[in-house]
């Protein structure tokens, strides 16, 4: 299946959605999906177009928006990558639907995005911070977080007290 066929099938299945394609800038076949239709599009991709393997879930912090990027492959059909992007212009409280019910491999990756970038995922079974602890001040991967070193005493008040290590 070529990229154009995939795009035309998607457009047929969701006629009211406008898909933007970003292939020249990014060198991969990239489709931008509006945030509110993400779960429907993802379910269609998994069930009808056989994209059963979610390889990577990343988030990028641009000056005016957040972006969540999904890299999808098809193990059954083979072929190249399909990159889905979701743009989140709300910088105060960014949130998007979770794809963990569709591809369970996204579980830990979404928790990591929540931890390090601050984007919440609605419908995630267990959204907790994964790499840092709950009291850690801030979300490190955002561009406005300064990468400085802390001493042990500075972070002492933010730690959970035993027995909740």
């Amino acid at each position: 299946m070529t990229n154009d066929e995939i795009l035309s099938k998607l457009q047929e299945a969701f006629p009211q959605v406008e898909f933007q394609v970003q292939t020249e800038e990014t060198k991969n076949f990239t489709v931008i999906v509006p945030a509110e239709r993400l779960v429907d599009v993802a379910t269609y991709l998994r069930d009808h177009l056989k994209f059963d393997y979610l390889s990577n879930l990343a988030s990028v912090d641009y000056p005016e928006r957040f972006e969540v990027v999904y890299h999808l492959y098809s193990m059954k059909r083979g072929g190249g990558v399909l990159v889905l992007k979701v743009l989140l212009p709300d910088r105060e409280k960014p949130e998007v639907d979770s794809v963990t019910p569709i591809w369970p491999g996204a579980n830990y990756q979404e928790r990591e995005v929540y931890d390090l970038m601050g984007i919440s995922f609605n419908g995630h079974p267990d959204l907790r911070r994964i790499m840092l602890w709950d009291g850690f001040p801030g979300h490190p991967l955002r561009k406005d977080f300064e990468n400085r070193t802390y001493t042990f005493k500075e972070l002492e008040p933010t730690r959970p007290k035993p027995p909740d290590w």
């Binding site: 977080f145 990468n147 070193t149 042990f152």
Partner: peptide
């Protein structure tokens, strides 16, 4: 690793 998550030396503790 000069970063937010690493203790800069064991002799702090």
């Amino acid at each position: 690793f000069k970063s937010y998550a690493v203790l800069q030396g064991a002799d702090e503790i």
